[in-house]
Structures are given as structure tokens and as C-alpha cells.
Design a protein around this nucleic acid. Sequence first.
DNA 1: GTCACAAAGGTCAAATAAAGTCAAATCACA
DNA 2: TGTGATTTGACTTTATTTGACCTTTGTGAC
Lengths: 146, 146
Amino acid sequence: MRISDIIADFLLSGLGESGGMLEVSRGELAQRFGCVPSQINYVLTTRFSPEHGYIVETKRGGGGYVRITRVRLSGNALIMHAVNAIGDSIDARTAAAFLSNLEAVSDPRLLSVIAAAVSDLALRSVDPEQRDAARASILKSCLILL
Amino acid sequence: MRISDIIADFLLSGLGESGGMLEVSRGELAQRFGCVPSQINYVLTTRFSPEHGYIVETKRGGGGYVRITRVRLSGNALIMHAVNAIGDSIDARTAAAFLSNLEAVSDPRLLSVIAAAVSDLALRSVDPEQRDAARASILKSCLILL
DNA sequence: GTCACAAAGGTCAAATAAAGTCAAATCACA
DNA sequence: TGTGATTTGACTTTATTTGACCTTTGTGAC
């Protein structure tokens, strides 16, 4: 397992214990995991983006911190939010993040079918230039039915 | 026996032991069998496609992997027949017909989501030349999960 | 107040580590 | 012997790790 995954797991479990909000120090975290501080930023941007359902706030300077908050919208609001947030184009990773974010509010079988429909495997025959646009369009078409 | 068959057998037996899910490294596998890495891709596309009842997911970069999952083809002869009957290309009307044939054997909500995913509306951003091919690929990827 | 400095965190690009693509060459067999 | 399947390798794309340098904020000296 990559260090990024280990850090992400650590943060995730902290979020779980603390009921959705977590405050850490970037420097301390980096020290604990023996990596450079910017690695923490990498983890945050790749795994705790708004698409994944998190808000990250930070403060610099003395007493600085990194605060991660799990956003918990419910049901329709979440779906509508996702539909609105998907633009004209979306890459496979982001699409997967959106879908996993909907797990709490929608049938997992439906979600896995949608995930299959927008996977790179399913879209292999689409010109790479158009692939992300097609993915966005398909994803929105599916989500509004949920 | 050709190297592709040997590799396929190896993967198959791994899938057997591990109960249907297997994660390997493309590079390591290639080394073990003394072939180039792209040979692994060849094996995957020719022997572990959705038509064969498998889903292959991969990740590139550090910590990359190839994950093969055998899907529970619990199914219905009707669905399997549909998957095999869909060629490389299918028009919107035919796809809709296939789906309506499955009404008897599958959740209508799932089917309507799939119908949305393969509709011309959802695929409007795909070059018309490629649209029916994309539709076929998406449809198969979804049906295999039913 | 304001200046200097320390204590955070931020950015960005290079280096490294996988996997993907595609087409030419080769093989096997009807 | 022609054709589809297989093998190979040069080139591409994506994910992660690392480090040098930048910006913001708090605090104490003056």
C-alpha cells in the first residue's frame, strides 16, 4: 500500500471516530508518516476533494491547522448537488468519487451499474478527446433518474 | 501451449483460489512469465472481457495494479444471451428493444437507468460514427452486472 | 503601531513508478 | 498459403513521491 493510501486511511478513521470533523497539523502528520509535508496536500487534493464529499479548511502561521469536514447532505439534495457539480466533462476518477459519495443515499446495485456505464472500459471505443464529455453526459442522464 | 494460455490459466487459478477477485501487478506478471507487459493486456482483453464474465480495473502510476473480478453470472439465460448477441455496435432502437425484452427478468429501475445511459441523448456528445459502438460497449458492461 | 522573525501551511515542477496503446512482425493452422 | 491469433517493443499517459521555494499569520521588541 502506498503512503498516500495509508495517510488517507488514517484520516478516514479519524473522521469516523470523531463524527465527521477532524483537525490535524500538516507538519506533525508528515512527521508521523515520515514523508514531506506536501505529500499531505497531495492526499487532501486527491482523496478529500468536494467531489469526495469533504471540505478542507486550513490556516497558516502559528497555531495553523488542517481541518477536514465530511459534508453530509441527504437524499435528493446530494443527488442534485452532484448533477449540478458535473460540468461538460468529467474524468473517470472524479466520476467514481461522485458515485461513491452517493452510496449512502442510493441503491448500490444501481450505482454499480452506473459506474460500469461511465467506466473507461465501457467508453473504450469513444475517442479519448470526447470521452470525458460523453462520461459527463451519461452520468447526468443516469443520476437524474435516481 | 502458448504463453497467453499459460498466463490465462494462471490468472484463472488465482481467481479460483481467491474466490473471484484477484489483484496483480502487470509488470511482475510479465517478468514471471518472461514476456513484455503488453502481453498481459492482450490476455486480459481476449480472455477476461465482460463477455467472458469478468471486469478488469486497473490503476497506473506508483502502486498501480490490475484487478480482475469475476462477476456473478447468476443469471438468467436471457441476459447472457443478450450480452452475447450484442455485437460491436448497436443502434438506439435495437438497444431499447433488448432492454424491454429484459423487463420480465430484471428490476425496471435498473433497466431504465441503463436505457438512459445508452440513449442518444446521453450519447449526443459522441461522434455519430462511434456512437453505436460506444452504445454496445456500455450496454454490455451494464448488462453483465444484472 | 510596526518591524522582524518564527511557525505554520501552499505551490509547482522534477523524478520515479506503474499501466496503456498501437502497429509491425511472427506464428499456427485450416 | 492466407488469415486470424499472438508476440514484441517503441512510445504515451497517469499516479505518486520529493524537494526547493513562496505566502500567511502570530508574537514580541521597540
